[in-house]
Computed example of a mutant assay.
Amino acid sequence: MSVNIQLDSVAKHFGTVRAVDDVSFALSDAETVALVGHNGAGKTTLIKLMLGLSRPTSGSVTVLGQDTSAGSSAVRRHLGYLPENVSFNPVLTGREMLRFYVGLKGESLRSVNELMDRIGLAHAADRRIGTYSKGMRQRLGLAQALIGTPRVLLLDEPTTGLDPELRQQFYRIVREMRDAGTTILLSSHALNELEGNATRVIIMNEGKKIADGSLDELRRIARLPTVIRMRATDGGVQRIRDWMGNRPDLRQVNGHTIELDASPDSKIAFLRRTAGAEVPFDDIEMVPPGLDELYAHFLGGRPSA
């Protein structure tokens, strides 16, 4: 596995503002990494540094083996970028816009039709962009980012304006790109979307990296409880309560569902105890802490990764 992006002690200052402060990480091929953080956390600044649109105040940023400060056009040909707010000439048609960008990258014009079809805009290829909805413009921006099958794909809030079906289509494309070896960096506030689509999460806060790892690794570090949810059979809620004893974390969700918190060390013991008892429930569900909870945990001043 090769490293396609390397940041070493990178800082970017704007006067007294430390937009990025001593950040280091490496991104390898065939990896989908979620970059999360509140507005002003430094996410977009990091992306601009990787694109070579901005130079670090200190430290180094290397993409595909080249220092981005050098502004290598050869490297940029292998980069794909979708900004948070896409803006295209409204007078051009979708096909004309893509032909322009395909030509800039030196790719075959024959790829235009394939790209329009891939992002679901073949039916509107010859309509002016000024008539496109926000979601259509976002898809057109994605098509532009995919030109030439980039080795590195940087996506800033990529699903803005997309309906649920198109979001699924977008993440299917992301998985295809990752499986083909592309390094993908996703910056997004839609944390629930990222859980099943990112292999790794980097959390930023006030310009600093405060956590970095897979969801399982972050869960082990955070040691947040798993929610165990049991659905009782008819009239079984009180019997479950009696069997549980006086647990302060026991919660009744509705007339037939009870839930409680289990620490990482105790959840297996609880399941074994439950399996050997005649407890009146017909379903049990274990809900590990999601990215929302992990994000809040690490931003709450607890020990970082």
Rank of each mutant, 00 (worst) to 15 (best):
F14M: 07
R241T: 14
I228T: 11
E293Y: 05
R231Q: 15
N113G: 09
G235F: 04
G276C: 05
N205F: 13
E31P: 00
A190P: 00
P225K: 05
R302Y: 08
F100Q: 14
V3Y: 05
A296R: 11
P158H: 00
A269I: 12
V102Y: 09
A222E: 04
Q169P: 01
E157Q: 09
V287N: 14
L7C: 12
M244C: 12
L98F: 04
A124T: 01
A211T: 15
V279T: 15
M50L: 13
D242R: 07
R247K: 07
R241F: 13
R219A: 09
D212P: 11
Q168S: 08
N197H: 15
L299Y: 02
N113P: 03
D179A: 03
A145L: 02
F281P: 12
S187Y: 06
F281N: 11
V152S: 02
R302M: 04
V33C: 11
E31Y: 00
E107N: 11
L215G: 03
V61W: 11
T62V: 15
P289R: 01
S69N: 14
P289L: 06
E176I: 03
L294H: 06
V112P: 03
V91I: 15
D212S: 12
I203T: 07
T226A: 08
R76L: 05
R95A: 11
R151I: 01
G42Y: 05
L121P: 03
D126P: 00
F100N: 11
G37Q: 11
R110S: 14
S24Q: 05
Q169C: 03
S28M: 07
T199D: 15
F170N: 03
R178K: 03
V227C: 11
M97R: 10
A198H: 04
R239Q: 15
G71Y: 12
G130M: 01
A190E: 08
E285R: 14
T149W: 08
L271H: 02
N113S: 09
D156S: 04
D163L: 08
D292R: 10
R128W: 00
V287S: 11
V10R: 09
F270K: 06
P225S: 01
K208N: 10
L215R: 05
Y101K: 10
I202T: 14
E84C: 06
E165C: 08
I202A: 14
G196A: 06
H189W: 00
R151N: 10
G80A: 10
S73T: 12
L291G: 03
G130K: 02
S69V: 15
T160Q: 13
A269M: 13
A305V: 07
G80P: 07
H13E: 13
K43S: 05
I210T: 06
G255W: 12
M230N: 04
S28V: 07
A30S: 08
L109W: 13
R127N: 07
A124P: 00
F88C: 08
L98P: 04
R137H: 07
T62F: 09
Y81A: 14
I147M: 02
S60W: 11
L140S: 03
K105H: 09
A275S: 14
Y295F: 12
